[in-house]
Amino acid sequence: MRVNLENPNTHQLKQVKVGFSWTTFFFGFWPALFRGDWKWFGIQLVIEIFLGCFTYGIGAGIVGIVFSFFYNKLYINDLLKSGYVPSDKASEDILLNKGITVANK
């Protein structure tokens, strides 16, 4: 399920997936890098390196699995905090149903 978020200042539109992140599940921290989400890229990378060093790499895989359950929600919350708003009523309803607080336009 995807939602459309728009920045009212720049009119930039982003279509973001809501729910489980299959890309994070399979590729770990790389989806955050390609989205330009530097904060969560750095956090995931540091955790994966730290846990991977002490567990022969198994810990890095586990971090990717754990983050895949909530990374999309973290990314959406960061976009909303930076000024993005749902561009349509359907997107707003989806976010509210998933427990993501949406500020008024």
Rank of each mutant, 00 (worst) to 15 (best):
Glu6Trp: 02
Trp22Thr: 00
Gly83Thr: 05
Ser91Glu: 11
Leu51Ala: 14
Gly61Cys: 14
Lys98Val: 01
Lys39Arg: 15
Ile62Ser: 08
Val16Glu: 01
Pro8His: 08
Gly52Val: 02
Tyr71Met: 12
Ala103His: 14
Ala32Gln: 14
Gly36Trp: 10
Leu80Cys: 09
Gln15Leu: 13
Ser91Val: 12
Leu45Asp: 10
Val46Arg: 11
Trp38Phe: 06
Val85Leu: 12
Tyr56Arg: 02
Phe25Gly: 00
Asp88Val: 07
Phe34Thr: 13
Ser21Glu: 02
Asn4Leu: 15
Thr23Asp: 09
Leu96Val: 14
Phe29Trp: 13
Ser21Trp: 00
Thr10Ser: 13
Arg2Gly: 06
Thr55Gln: 05
Met1Gln: 03
Arg35Cys: 05
Thr24Gly: 06
Ser87Pro: 03
Arg35Met: 08
Arg35Phe: 07
Met1Cys: 05
Gly83Asp: 04
Asn4His: 11
Trp30Ala: 15
Val66His: 00
Thr101Glu: 12
Phe26Glu: 06
Lys98Ser: 03
Leu79Ser: 09
Phe29Asp: 08
Thr10Cys: 11
Ile65Gly: 04
Asn7Lys: 06
Ile62Cys: 11
Ala90Val: 09
Cys53Lys: 10
Asp37Gln: 14
Leu96Cys: 05
Phe67Lys: 05
Phe50Asn: 05
Lys98Ile: 01
Lys89Arg: 12
Val102Glu: 01
Tyr75Asn: 07
Leu80Met: 10
Thr24Ile: 07
Leu95Gln: 10
Ala60Leu: 07
Asn72Leu: 06
Leu79Cys: 04
Lys14Gly: 03
Lys39Val: 13
Thr55Cys: 13
Gly64Met: 04
Phe54Pro: 02
Asp93Arg: 08
Phe26Tyr: 11
Gly61Ser: 08
Lys81Gly: 11
Met1Tyr: 00
Gly19Arg: 03
Trp38Gln: 04
Tyr84Ser: 09
Leu33Glu: 07
Leu95Gly: 04
Leu79Glu: 01
Thr23Asn: 12
